[in-house]
Every structure is written in structure tokens, then in C-alpha cells.
Amino acid sequence: MLAFLEAHGHWGYIYASLAVTVVLVLADLLPPWLRQRKLQNDLRARARREQHRSES
């Protein structure tokens, strides 16, 4: 990988910096977003179950 970077000159290092930044930002944002989605789905499913139970 380092040889690839060195072969592409300055722009190789720039693209590598951008790629690393995008990966780290996604790694920062995805876990809390997914946790929130999961909790939201769990609580909504529970609310639906309770509604069904009260209707039947």
C-alpha cells in the first residue's frame, strides 16, 4: 500500500488522507445511529404489541 502511495506522488497521499477521513467519520457516526434505530424499532414493536393486546 505504501508503495502504491509513493508511486502516485502528492495526490496519492491526498486521496489516502481523504479515504482514511471518510472511513473514520463513518466509523464515528454509524454505531450511535444504528443503536438509535434498533432502540426505536424495539420500542415501536412493543407499542404495537401492547396496542394489539388492548384491542383483542
Binding site: 450511535p32 438509535q36 432502540l39 426505536q40 420500542l43 415501536r44 407499542a47
Partner: peptide
């Protein structure tokens, strides 16, 4: 990112509370 993380952690911590359930159902 701070609001996203803190909001998610807060909802997780208070998941048994009525206001969390209301907020989640409201968002649907």
C-alpha cells in the same frame, strides 16, 4: 456527532421511561 451520540445514549439509559417511548412513537 455529540448530539447524535448523547441522544442515543440518553434514550438507551432511560428506555424504561414513558417519555422515551412517547418520543420514539412520536418520531414514527
Amino acid at each position: 456527532a455529540l448530539l447524535l451520540r448523547t441522544r442515543s445514549a440518553l434514550a438507551e439509559q432511560e428506555r424504561g421511561k414513558q417519555w422515551v417511548r412517547e418520543a420514539m412513537v412520536e418520531a414514527a
